[in-house]
Design a protein around this nucleic acid. Structure first.
Length: 257
DNA sequence: ATGCCCGGAACGTCCGGA
């Protein structure tokens, strides 16, 4: 089973790139973030033509997450529990292909410190609380997406320059570690512990892609039962180098199921 | 020290992104 996560930075602007990559990479399950549109305007027909079922949680202009799956799919959550009447489309969770999977778009938290960082940390507390329940279910669970967290300085092209940014601040990293300590395996770094320049995002500005000034902020977290199935996890840099690219590139994870 | 580049909304130019 081949899974992928990809922040596409507008599904409408990125549709040709997404369709081409789906056809070429042939993933079974895809977790998308930053759709930037409502569910009614999600290009479901084009994606269904490639054999996917779609679970979409949209929002006008901002955020938006989806799960695409070649298997039958049952939606479990359209919003991260614990947030009252949260309006931001940042979480969708479903059963599909024998797995429980969630597509996550964590708030970035800048400028920091301030309200935005507080919202991010509060959102992470909710994720930690929900994940604590999921990990007791003794089933293979995959929590993947754009976490907007660089877990360590090895995941940043310029750790000193980014030290005070919400993606790298100790408060953000501490929450991420709290989540991992529940027993989640962060697949990409686990399989590539010493790899340098292992990035998933390159800013559009200042020639970041050409200079390989990247960040690793898109992550696959696996429950113990899912980690037991882990075969490979890789960054596919291809889509970032193409015309009209997203600023993120897909991370692909293969499970032996 | 600041902005660089994008997409969305909307038709000015700003907001959000990371």
């Amino acid at each position: 089973m081949k899974l992928a996560t990809w922040n596409v930075n507008s599904i409408k602007a990125r549709l040709p790139n997404v369709l081409a990559w789906l056809g070429e990479a042939q993933p079974d399950i895809v977790l998308l973030q930053e759709l930037k549109t409502v569910e009614e305007n999600f290009p479901a027909i084009e994606i269904e033509e490639l054999g996917y079922n779609c679970a979409v949680v949209g929002q006008k202009s901002y955020n938006g997450v989806a799960i695409l799956s070649k298997h039958p799919m049952e939606i479990e959550h359209r919003v991260l529990p614990g947030g009252g009447d949260e309006e931001q489309a940042r979480y969708v969770e479903a059963f599909t292909g024998g797995l429980r999977v969630a597509s996550i778009y964590l708030p970035h938290g800048n400028p920091a410190p301030g309200e935005k960082l507080d919202y991010k940390l509060g959102w992470m507390d909710r994720l930690i609380a929900h994940a604590a329940g999921l990990i007791t279910l003794d089933e293979p669970v995959v929590l993947a997406g754009d976490y907007n967290i660089c877990p360590t300085d090895a995941d940043v092209y310029d750790p000193v320059g980014w030290a005070d940014d919400a993606l790298c601040r100790p408060e953000s990293r501490a929450k991420f570690r709290t989540l991992l300590w529940q027993g989640w395996t962060e697949a990409l770094r686990t399989l590539h512990p010493d790899q340098e320049h292992l990035y998933t995002f390159w800013d559009y500005q200042a020639g970041a892609w050409q200079r390989d000034n990247g960040l690793r902020i898109d992550h696959f977290l696996l429950s113990p039962q899912a980690a037991d199935l882990l075969k490979t996890c890789e960054v596919d840099k291809g889509p970032r180098g193409q015309e009209k690219a997203s600023d993120h590139t897909p991370v692909v994870c293969e499970l032996d199921i």
